[in-house]
């Protein structure tokens, strides 16, 4: 199978790797680039564990062709911590918003884009923002609380 070179920005650094024809971005990031933070849950768009941010919008990496990110900016959960953990990660720990943790990287991506666009979301807006991310452990309440708490702390800061 032919391989195509893909050059893109990953969490602020330029990266280049080869993608087999038709390879999805999730497999590309995990296997060719070595970023293991986006998770494989379903490969069908239903679970959201593979959520990444492309040019400021959340996308499902399992349904994105790797070559489509040529020249674009991709952000993943592994880029959140910058010297110290990101306020969202801090809040997720404090509120027990991760149990098995499999949904967490995707949840963090959806939460980050929400707070970037809307610094003081309502509870309903938080629920809407994570409606494309399934969690089989927490029952969602701790996750919603963690996101709302992050917004509150930021407002006070």
């Amino acid at each position: 199978m032919a391989k195509k070179p893909v050059t893109f920005m990953l969490n602020g650094s330029e990266r280049a790797a080869f993608a087999e024809e038709g390879l999805n971005l999730l497999e590309f990031l995990r296997r060719a680039v070595g970023d293991l933070s986006p998770k494989y849950g379903c490969g069908q768009g239903t679970c959201g564990a593979c959520t990444v941010i492309i040019d400021g919008e959340t996308h499902l990496s399992c349904l994105t062709m790797a070559e489509a990110v040529q020249g674009r900016k991709v952000e993943t959960a592994s880029g959140l911590a910058n010297g110290k953990v990101h306020p969202l990660q801090e809040a997720f720990m404090e509120h027990f918003a991760a149990q098995c943790g499999y949904c967490t990287p995707g949840m963090l991506m959806s939460a980050k884009v929400l707070l970037d666009h809307n610094p003081s979301p309502s509870r309903a807006e938080v629920i809407e923002a994570i409606s494309g991310n399934l969690c089989r452990c927490t029952g969602y309440e701790p996750i919603i609380d963690a996101i709302l708490a992050t917004a509150n702390t930021r407002r006070l800061a």
Partner: peptide
């Protein structure tokens, strides 16, 4: 293939058409 939300499911499953045009 446009947004790919349906076409990529087939690509991932190895059941898509022989050529994907974008």
């Amino acid at each position: 293939m446009a947004g790919g939300t349906l076409v990529m499911r087939d690509v991932n499953a190895g059941t898509s058409a022989g050529r994907v045009v974008r």
